[in-house]
Design a binder for these strands. Structure first.
Lengths: 218, 218, 218, 218
DNA sequence: CATGAATGAGATTTCATTCAT
DNA sequence: GATGAATGAAATCTCATTCAT
C-alpha cells in the first residue's frame, strides 16, 4: 500500500518536476513576462488545464522556482562547516572550498541562476520579501562569520556588515558576468575563486600598504 | 524668431521632462509591467494621446530613461580625471573622490537607480545591448585603469579584468543595499566609500598576509 | 476515437461557420471598416476572446471570406464543362447554362457578393493580389475559350482578351445592379441572362450591320 | 476692389485645389482609410489645422472629390451632342467620338478614377446616394438614347435598360483593367473603343446569327 | 486526473478634429 | 487666416485562468 502510494506520488512528482524544468527553460528563453503558460505545457506535452492541477498559477510557480533556488544557495553556504579555522592559511583553504561549492551550484543551474539575477525583482513585489530574506540570511551569516574570525584574531577590525555586503557583491557580479552574460567565460572557475578569496583576504588585513586615515587625506 | 522658437522648444522640453519624471515615479512605485501609461499622464495632467506626441510608447520611454541613467553613470566615471597619480596615497584620495561623486549621483537619482537594478534586464531583451554596452565600457575603463596603475608600480600583478569585475560588484551591491533596499541606511556614505576604497587598495597589494599559492593549499 | 475526434472537429467547424456567417452579416450591414469584432461575437453569443481562437483577426477573417467567395465563383465557371460545342446554337445553350449557374451562386450569396463588389479592393492592399489572381484566372479562361471557339469557326476574329474583359464587365455590372443595388429587380434572371448571351453572341459575328472600318469613318 | 477680391479668392482657391490634388495622391497611394490628414497637409506644406479652414473634414473632402469626378464623367457624356444620327454609320462615328472623349477624361484623371472604382462605395454609406444618383442618370440617359435609336429604326427591339446596364459594365471593366490595374496597357485606346463600339452595335442588330428563341432551346 | 475550449478584463495605441495663440 | 499641440474616444487583441466534459 505504502509502496504503491509512494510510486503514485513519485509519478506525480516526476510530472511536476518536468513542468518546473520546462518552466525554467521557457522563463530563461523569453523572460517571465513574455513566457506563456501554453509554451510550458507544450514542452511537457500536457494540456493547458493540467498546469493548474499542479500549480496555482504562473506566478506561484515562479515563486516556487525562486524558493528552490534560494534555498539551494543558502543551504550550500549554511551546510559548509568551516571546522577549526585557526589560521589565515586554513581560512584561505576553507573559503576556496565554499567558493568552489557555490560555483558548482551556479554552473549546474545556469538557467535559473540567470533568471534569478535578471528578473527576480521584477516579477512581483510579493517576491521581494522572499529574496530579501535570503539576502538577509546570507549577509547575517557572513557578518557573524567575519565577527568570529576577528575575535580569533584572523581578520582586522572593520564594519563587518559592509564587508559582508561587499563580498556578496563581488561574488554576484562575477557570477552574473560568467553565467548570465557569458563574459569571463575563458577564465577558469578556480582562477576566479582564487581572485575572490585573495581579494577578501587582502581586504581584511590590518595594515594596508599606503592606506592612510581619513583625516590625513585632506 | 529664434527666441520664440527657443521658447517653444523649451516649453516642449519641460513637458517632456515632466512626463519622464512622472514615468520614473510610476515605474518606481509599480514596476515597469504594472505601470500604466494612464497613470503617467494622469500625474502630469494631460490626455492619454498626448503621451504619444512625446514618446513612441511605454517601452521606448523606458529605454530613454535607461539611456539617460547609464549615460549619467558612465559619464560620471569617465569625466573623472585621475590626474597625476604617483603614489598609493594619491590613488586613495582620487578613488575616494570618484566614489563620492558616484554616490552623489545615485543618491540624487534614487528612483531610477532602483528601477535600473530591479528590472532593467527584465523589460525587454532589446535593452540588454544598451546595458551590456554600459557595463562593457565601465569594465574596460576600469581594466585599463588597473593596468596603468600596475605599470606605474602602484598595484600588484593580477587579472585586471577580474579585478575590475569584482570592484564593480562591490560597488553595485553596496549601492543596491543602501539605495534600493534601504538597508545600510545608518551608514554614512563616506564610511561606505572608505570601506570600498580600502578593500580595493588592500586587494591590490603584492603580498597578502597569510596568502599561499594554490599548490601549497592541497 | 475517430468518431469522437470527428464530432469534435465538426463542432468546431460549425462554430467557425457560424462566426463567418455572422461576420458576413455584420460586414454587409456596416461595411468592413465600421464593423466591429464585438458585433460579430455578440451575434454568435460567444466572448470576445473566442473570436481569436478561430481567426487571427478581423482582417484575416475578411481575407478568408474573400477567398471562399472567389473560389466559389471561379470554380463555378471552371467546373462548367462546355462539352461538345459544335454550333452557335449549342454555344448559346451552354452559355445560358453557365450564366444561370453563376446567377444562382450570386443569388445564394447575396451578402458576400455585395461586400465583394462594394469594398473588397478597399480593405487592404494585401487582398488585391488575391482578387487580381481570380480576375486573371477568369479572364484567361474566357480568352482561351474565345480562341477555341474562333478556331472552330464559331466566332469571328477579334481581340479575344478585350472581348473577355467586356464580357466580364457586362456580367458584373448586371449582377451589381440586380444584387447589390436592387435595381433591375423586376427583371427575371432568365431574361437578364438571355440578354447577356445574346449580346455576347451578337458581338462575335463576322459582319455587323452598318459597321465600317476605321479608315472610312473619318 | 473686385479685382483684389478675385485675386484673393483666387489665391484661396489655389490652395484649396492644391490640397485636393494632394488628397487625391494620398488617397490613391494609401487608400481612403489608411490615408492620414497629416500626410495631405504635409504635401502641401501647411499646418494640420489649416486643413479644417478649407474642408469640413476628411470625409467631406472625399465626398467633394467624388462629386467632382462624377460630374466630370456625367458632363462628358451629357455634353456630347449626338447631332443628327440617321444611320448606323453615323451612330458608329458618334459612339466612337464619345468613347474617345470619355477615355481621355479617365486617362487625364487616372488617380481619382482608380480611387473611384477601388473604394468609393466603401468609404461611407452617405456617398452611395451620390454614386447611385450618377449611375441612375447615366443609365437613364443611355436607356433613353437607346429608345430613341430604336424609334429611328437604328437598333432592334430589346430591354433598353438591360442594354444600357451591360454597356456601362463593358466600359467600366475595360477602364478598370486599363487604368486601375494596368492590364491591357499595351492596347491602344482607339482599339479598345472600337471593340466597345463594335460590340454595342453588334448587340443591337435584329437578327443574330445562330440565335434562337428561348422556347426552341430546351 | 486530464482535457482544451471558452472566458473577459483591460491596456495600448491611433488619428481626426479642436481651439488657444 | 494660420498654426500645431492637445484631445479623447474607441477598438483590437492577449493570455492567465476556469470548468464542463
Amino acid at each position: 500500500m505504502t509502496t504503491k502510494e509512494q510510486r503514485r506520488k513519485s509519478k506525480r512528482d516526476k510530472r511536476r518536476d518536468a513542468m518546473k524544468q520546462a518552466a525554467i527553460e521557457v522563463f530563461f528563453e523569453h523572460g517571465y513576462h513574455a513566457a506563456k503558460v501554453s509554451q510550458i505545457v507544450e514542452r511537457v506535452g500536457v494540456a493547458q488545464g493540467t498546469f493548474y492541477l499542479y500549480f496555482e498559477g504562473k506566478q506561484q510557480l515562479f515563486g516556487e522556482l525562486l524558493s528552490d533556488f534560494l534555498e539551494l544557495v543558502v543551504t550550500t553556504v549554511a551546510n559548509w562547516d568551516p571546522g577549526e579555522i585557526d589560521s589565515r592559511r586554513v581560512l584561505q583553504r576553507e573559503l576556496t572550498r565554499v567558493g568552489m561549492s557555490l560555483t558548482e551550484v551556479f554552473l549546474d543551474n545556469r538557467k535559473i541562476t540567470a533568471i534569478f539575477f535578471r528578473e527576480s525583482l521584477a516579477v512581483a513585489p510579493e517576491f521581494n520579501t522572499l529574496i530579501r530574506h535570503a539576502y538577509e540570511t546570507l549577509l547575517a551569516m557572513l557578518t557573524d562569520f567575519n565577527r568570529i574570525l576577528h575575535r580569533r584574531g584572523l581578520i582586522a577590525e572593520m564594519d563587518f556588515r559592509i564587508l559582508a555586503t561587499m563580498t556578496v557583491g563581488m561574488v554576484e557580479r562575477v557570477i552574473v558576468e560568467r553565467i548570465v552574460h557569458d563574459t569571463l567565460e575563458e577564465k577558469e572557475p578556480r582562477a576566479i575563486v582564487d581572485h575572490l578569496v585573495m581579494h577578501y583576504l587582502a581586504g581584511t588585513t590590518d595594515d594596508i600598504e599606503g592606506f592612510v586615515a581619513e583625516e590625513e587625506l585632506k
